[in-house]
């Protein structure tokens, strides 16, 4: 009935918002029906009050900044190390033989298993969380970079070499860009892993952050705080996905027209 008045994007947003509102309304309506204590089943109003309180006391902004800082630094370091290791293993047969068994073994030990020993070595807090995040991000980046490097079409390498490329120029102008679609796949996987890893590490090894808020709220029967933490976590991930992962994909893969090697072969 409002067709023509709204842009498709606005309409989509309004419909999405309507879904959320209906869910919140049902939740609020269910509270008297369930009839349990707020610490067991808090209402949306309780959650809102917890949110306002956490903002007024300055707790939530600090936790959010802490979580974001840990996340971005951990992911950033993991990306750099993962790409570097993937390149090294992909380009050097010796490095591949020495490192591949080791890396396959380490990959099998999930980061959750490392966190207790990281806590012993590095204590609770920043260092342990950072190292856990780097660890989580490293492997998907490494494997996907490696895959990308190993599947660079030989004809691109040959073309660049007969145009006079040095080894370094070959890596910079051919191998890295050719591997970029794979690297971005690794980035998406790693970013998702790292986000879960962050919440988990904060639950175990932190005294601040969104993960800590979720855990601490529940263990002190401030359940509304836990739900605030969960909602913030969801919004944070949507924000990171929209503002940082999607645009990277757009400017690389999409601009080359979903380029695959098959396109050039007839």
């Amino acid at each position: 009935m409002n067709a023509g008045l709204l842009t498709p994007a606005t309409e989509r947003f309004l419909k999405g918002a309507a879904g959320v509102l209906v869910l919140v309304a049902l939740w609020q309506a269910s509270v008297p029906l369930v009839g349990l204590e707020p610490y067991f089943y808090p209402s949306p109003a309780d959650v809102w009050h917890a949110f306002v309180e956490l903002m007024e006391k300055g707790i939530l902004p600090v936790y959010l900044v802490d979580s974001l800082y840990r996340y971005l630094l951990g992911v950033g370091l993991g990306i750099v190390l993962g790409i570097a290791a993937g390149l090294l293993i992909g380009l050097s047969a010796t490095a591949s033989r020495i490192l591949t068994p080791l890396i396959n073994f380490l990959f099998a030990i999930v980061e959750v298993a490392w966190i207790p020993i990281f806590v012993i070595w590095f204590g609770y807090g920043f260092k342990t969380i950072l190292i856990a995040l780097v660890y989580v991000v490293l492997f998907p980046l490494l494997y996907n970079t490696l895959l990308g490097v190993r599947t660079v079409p030989q004809v691109y390498v040959n073309a660049a070499r007969s145009l006079g490329a040095t080894r370094l120029q070959l890596i910079k102008d051919v191998i890295l860009p050719a591997a970029l679609p794979n690297i971005i796949t690794g980035l998406r996987v790693g970013a998702g892993f790292a986000f879960r890893g962050l919440i988990f590490a904060e639950i175990i090894a932190a005294k601040t952050g969104i993960g800590y808020l979720i855990f601490e709220g529940a263990s002190t029967q401030q359940t509304a705080r836990t739900i605030v933490g969960m909602i913030v976590m969801g919004l944070l991930w949507l924000f990171l996905d929209r503002c940082y992962l999607k645009p990277i994909e757009r400017v690389t893969i999409e601009r080359w027209g979903q380029v695959t090697t098959a396109e050039d072969r007839e």
């Binding site: 040959n158 660049a160 145009l163 396109e263 050039d264």
Partner: peptide, 20 residues
């Protein structure tokens, strides 16, 4: 002994770099 810029190659599959 190795590829070099003194010998340019034109390939059947063009070998243009798709990202440039």
């Amino acid at each position: 002994t190795r590829p070099g810029a003194d010998r340019g190659v034109v390939f059947q599959e063009y070998a243009l770099l798709p990202w440039k």
